[in-house]
Design a protein around this nucleic acid. Structure first.
Lengths: 347, 347
DNA sequence: CTGTTAGCGCCTTCAT
DNA sequence: ATGAAGGCGCTAACAG
């Protein structure tokens, strides 16, 4: 059993006394503020090290008395996944109130680059930090970069713009998600040959495009028996998807699998059931919703790839808080991973 | 865009003034402390509600000035997964120092009920909270219950004792994990018939026993073409496992799948490779380690079920902190879920 | 039952 | 370049 020294009992005044300076000087050294001779600085740093001094976080937070404002810029038409994030933000808001930080949510048309960029320009400057579901478009990138330039912390959420100067991306690696879907399809078909259909919401969205890229990679190179049909876009809409899939099923008697890249799983599942081919066709999609949950249980869907909306909301908030206070973030803690959900590990 | 009121600016003294009482009384009401007339209490609660008062967490923490000590009771012989948890605790320790809490780690023989119970009795009373990798044995349960009785917060970690009075269990639903393994095996075999072997570490461990139960449930009821061989115990040891699997492969030419419930994947994988049946036999195990990672990439393993050690360590810490301060925990945030990892979504 | 008051440990003017 | 002193908002001990 390891007995730690009664750590954390050391306070600034202890350091000050030991180093023969005032607490103000220790504070200056602690935060790399100017106005301290090099020699003094070194001496203070040494004693901090020697005594193992750790500033008391609560005391610092209280004394600083800063308040911060964050804004989440979300899609105007919330699908279930996005709605879930917004709902979680409600709970988070309460916690943040106790830390004197607040979050607003604004909704905008994320498919319209001008609208999105306009929103960012309009609301951004009023906040210390922004989380944005980003459309990867030059106009949006510029708006983000300008906010960053003016000192606003920006994180991208769910969909990234890697070329922008955003501080952090909260979301999964979507190429890996697509690859995972590809591998699952290949393995679940167990060598069977046939056609694989991909339904996306919109390939303008970077997350959808990346998933498509990933699944194509795997199917094309690892499963020569499978033929990828051209990706279809159903705007994440149940009705559109139902029509698309009904047509697919009619045209391809050897359709072996469907990968739904975005939302609108209900339309696809219903079309499969209607055609009585729900059991024979492998169907993989994203996000656990009441619909996909039911489809998994009855065997219409075979696997759902998911990211935890609550975790993403909390991660974005933590990152925003930390970065706007110039504190470091723990990368490992903020990694969002892809879940593979089957009937038996549904949350 | 929703404009929130400049929330959180309300302080205790505002509430006090509005309610016509002193700050001390507000504080009493806030914490349900005795010594307040019913009428006053109601009045204060109303104004708190009306003003939307939220106590400033940092100020409260500073004023209270409590320090807490926690202890993690871990297995003496650390497998990679447990070692990972301990390593993460090192990082967490630093964060906790800033909150004036500290954690010790003690290692003990968790397979020996007397030793484990003895350790709990010996070290427990010195701490505000304990996280225990628990062996489900009456002696251990009693030790835990007595600690709880004396006011120590106890959480079980990775392996639970549901019948004990522990405040919380940090870990996955192992029956669900076993069921997930069963479904993956069944689906990956795609209707092929054959035998399924289960290798456990020790069925005395509740987590192993539960996984076994789960996998048996699914295979027996959903995949009649598959025959479950009696579970073998390899003490999570590579050498033992290698011998067991070599023998299995020799005896059963129709061995279709292996589910490794505990550690020691290397021995199993090596035996499969040696027998040149690595590709044909479906091999599923637990926990991402350098070994299982390599097996996944080269196709010896088909899927790994995993729980994130860092997340579990942090969750246990958060829960201990919250409960020992009489704060609520956010269940959803503390849920540990089972990850299905294939080659393409390796972290 | 209720109010007064002195901190908690750090940060931040304002002097020196 | 350095120090002294007053708060930050809440809690707890002590009066009344």
């Amino acid at each position: 059993m390891r007995e730690l020294p009664t750590a954390g009992m050391v306070e600034i005044k202890d350091v000050a006394r030991e180093a023969g300076v005032s607490t103000a000087t220790v504070d200056r050294v602690l935060h790399d503020r100017p106005g301290v001779r090099d020699a003094t600085m070194r001496r203070v740093k040494d004693t901090i090290e020697r005594l193992g001094f750790q500033p008391h976080a609560a005391a610092a937070e209280l004394a600083r008395g800063r308040r911060q404002r964050f804004c989440f810029v979300m899609p105007k038409t919330l699908n279930l996944f996005m709605a879930d994030i917004v709902e979680q933000l409600g709970a988070i808001r309460r916690q943040l109130a106790a830390r004197r930080a607040l979050i607003d949510v604004v909704e905008t048309d994320v498919f319209d680059a001008d609208a999105l960029a306009g929103t960012l320009e309009a609301v951004g400057p009023r906040y210390d930090g922004l989380a944005v579901v980003a459309l990867d478009h030059p106009r949006v990138r510029i708006a983000i970069d300008e906010l960053v330039e003016s000192g606003v912390v920006v994180v991208t959420l769910v969909s990234d713009i890697p070329s922008s100067r955003r501080a952090h991306y909260v979301g999964v690696n979507n190429i890996a998600a697509g690859r995972t879907a590809g591998t699952l399809i290949g393995r679940l078909l167990g060598g069977r040959a046939g056609k694989v259909a991909i339904i996306a919401g919109s390939l303008l969205l970077r997350d959808h495009a990346e998933r498509l890229f990933g699944v194509q990679q795997v199917i094309a190179t690892e499963y020569p028996g499978l033929t990828l049909l051209p990706a279809l876009e159903g705007r994440d809409d149940d009705d559109d998807n139902r029509v698309l899939v009904s047509r697919l099923l009619a045209e391809h008697s050897d359709l072996a699998a469907i990968y739904n890249i975005g939302a609108g799983a209900t339309g696809i599942g219903d079309a499969l059931i209607e055609a009585r081919r729900a059991q024979e066709v492998v169907f993989i999609g994203h996000d656990v919703t009441p619909q996909t949950r039911r489809f998994l249980i009855v065997g219409v869907m075979d696997a759902v790839l998911s990211q935890n909306p609550g975790r993403e909301a909390r991660s974005a908030t933590r990152v925003l808080l930390a970065l706007s206070r110039n504190e470091p973030i723990i990368a490992e803690q903020e990694r969002i991973d892809i879940h593979v959900i089957v009937r038996d590990n549904l949350p």
